[in-house]
């Protein structure tokens, strides 16, 4: 009886007369009949169609209907937006391929340019170049101070607001802050051009702009800028210049008492890893005292 879904077929009246007869004579038959008879006694909750329809209509009002025309509109806007994004990105890659690298106060960074030239940025400096045209003209814009190790090849130009430096493969340092420009040539040949003149530097030579805007020649002994070895070296720089460098290297603010002459000249160096030592080496020989107002602020005063 359990075979072939017999009860299922029986309920659907899908059995032969013989099967039926046999089943009706069995004890099970009455038991099953009893169950079926009683199942029908169960009631079900009422579903009021009209009431349901009414509340359904109210419920539907809280939804926005997605009509066909709306779907097309949305698609249209989507395509427009997508196209705009694509165009903007396209324009961006065509027009703005500039790469900018910058350093914060008290930070140095080494950056490899396309064609493997290496730039080391001193604190609070930035370089900017166009990725696309760099391969052709090798022009790089500099604010602040950086050391360049240029791979041999076509001319390489560093543009600063105070003058341009053009080189063939070489190593050189450029300092261009405020109105000053200072270029040290460590290897190869470097040409420096500002509004007044053009100077060609050979290894061991340097130039430094003076107050008149012309370029004064200088001799150097190091093979790398001193700041790359963790110190800043100065030869006949103003106190103002020195303070600016200290602020950059240590990310501090230095104020000066009016009795301090900012145009005094300084020669010497300070280290980058010990502020107290640096301050001592800078200011003790000049008879200037310094007071910390807080760890980031200090004031200078004549002793």
């Amino acid at each position: 009886m359990d075979k072939d879904n017999f009860l299922g077929r029986w309920l659907a009246d899908d059995i032969s007369d013989e099967e039926k007869k046999e089943f009706e004579n069995s004890d099970d038959y009455l038991a099953y009949k009893d169950i079926l008879r009683n199942v029908e006694k169960f009631d079900r909750p009422v579903f009021d169609v009209e009431k349901g329809l009414k509340s359904q209509k109210e419920y539907n009002k809280t939804f926005k209907k997605a009509t066909k025309s709306k779907v097309i509109k949305l698609k249209f806007w989507l395509y427009t937006a997508a196209a705009a994004v694509v165009i903007l990105f396209g324009l961006r890659t065509v027009l703005f391929t500039t790469t900018e690298v910058s350093t914060e106060m008290a930070e140095t960074k080494t950056w490899t340019l396309p064609e493997n030239s290496i730039v080391t940025l001193n604190a609070d400096s930035s370089i900017e170049y166009d990725k696309k045209s760099f391969a052709e003209n090798r022009i790089i814009y500099l604010k602040g101070e950086a050391f360049f190790d240029v791979e041999k090849g076509s001319s390489f130009t560093v543009k600063t607001k105070n003058g341009d430096i053009t080189v063939l493969g070489t190593e050189f340092n450029v300092y261009a802050r405020n109105e000053n420009i200072e270029v040290h040539c460590f290897e190869g040949k470097v040409q420096v051009t500002n509004t007044k003149e053009t100077v060609i530097l050979t290894p061991g030579k340097a130039i430094k702009s003076n107050a008149e805007g012309t370029l004064d020649p200088k001799e150097i002994k190091e093979s790398k800028p001193s700041w790359m070895q963790g110190k800043s070296t100065f030869n006949q720089v103003t106190l103002k210049h020195l303070i600016g460098e200290l602020e950059r290297q240590y990310d501090i603010k230095i104020t000066t008492n009016p009795n301090v002459d900012l145009n005094r000249l300084f020669s010497g160096f300070f280290v980058h890893n010990d502020l107290d030592k640096a301050l001592q080496t800078c200011f003790d020989p000049m008879d200037i005292s310094y007071i910390f107002k807080n760890p980031k602020n200090l004031e200078l005063k004549n002793k």
């Binding site: 359990d2 879904n5 017999f6 009860l7 299922g8 077929r9 309920l11 659907a12 899908d14 099970d28 038991a31 099953y32 009893d34 169950i35």
Partner: peptide, 22 residues
């Protein structure tokens, strides 16, 4: 339809077993 038939069959058998002979 076969699946419906089978479920009906099984349902009835289970009900019968659960209720036992009254």
């Amino acid at each position: 339809v076969k699946a419906v038939e089978k479920r009906m069959h099984l349902a009835l058998i289970i009900l019968r077993k659960k209720i036992g002979n009254v």
